[in-house]
Amino acid sequence: MNWLTKITPPGMSKIFSKRDTPDNLWVKCPKTGEMVFHKDLEAGLFVTPGGHHMRIGPSWRFQFTFDGEFKELDTPEVPRDPLKFKDDKPYTSRIQAARKKTGRDDAMAIAVGHIDGLESVVLVQNFAFMGGSLGMAAGESFIKAAEEAVKRKAPLVVYTAAGGARMQEGALSLMQMPRTTIAVEMLREAGLPYIVVLTDPTTGGVTASYAMLGDVHIAEPGALVGFAGPRVIEQTIREKLPEGFQRSEYLLEKGMVDKVVHRRDIPATLGRLLRVMMKRPGSSVRASLTPPPADHVVADGGGH
């Protein structure tokens, strides 16, 4: 309480509370500190004028990736809380909270649509849902997406974003590493393209399985991508890490990704790659990206 709230009569305080201005009207660019108006941010695909690629959820990704219409698929049901895991809160209540926040069942969403005229399955990992963590639900969704791609003879594109495995599912989450790897093998056997788009951040068991097994690895600029987190490495080697360590541009230099691509150019890049891989004629027109309706952002628990 400050002096103002003390002297103002009840009810009056509401007028002065900052709740009266909607959240996120202005967003600060983490890179330059510049304040960006939310409408402008949306129009720029959540890339600030300074070039910082903000974290976005599945609805935006689908919207940005597909030519037009797309259909979201249900994600498979998995056993809930098999370990009866409890830290400060039960795991089930953490899931509940994440569902409420994102409006989604778990950390992966699947959709089918067209990329540059080519039918494709797109899988998006949602960092807003418990850090995008790879548990049974995410693993099963990955397998379903691969199976769907095989069924449709369509490519699979996955946008990765995760801190790693979901600890609350113990070794069952660890088993998603071989399980998702099997799904990648299904695509290989079927001769279908599997493209990974690495977004900020992608680390741990996710990087050490399907995220590093793509035919092509595309990374968004500035994304943190690595096996161990920078803090763990610093503690291990007791040294400060060099500037830009584990960022997309560093991975490109070290040979771990094929290219670093601005969000605006990702659909066209995917289209070109997929059309060549699938031996389809080149497409002359690729509609430039237009901002989607604003209600999409709500569904993913925020645009950044």
Binding site: T207, S209, A211, A228
Partner: peptide, 8 residues
């Protein structure tokens, strides 16, 4: 490429 090595 620790993660790539593990995945492979």
């Amino acid at each position: 490429g620790q993660s790539e090595a593990i995945a492979r």
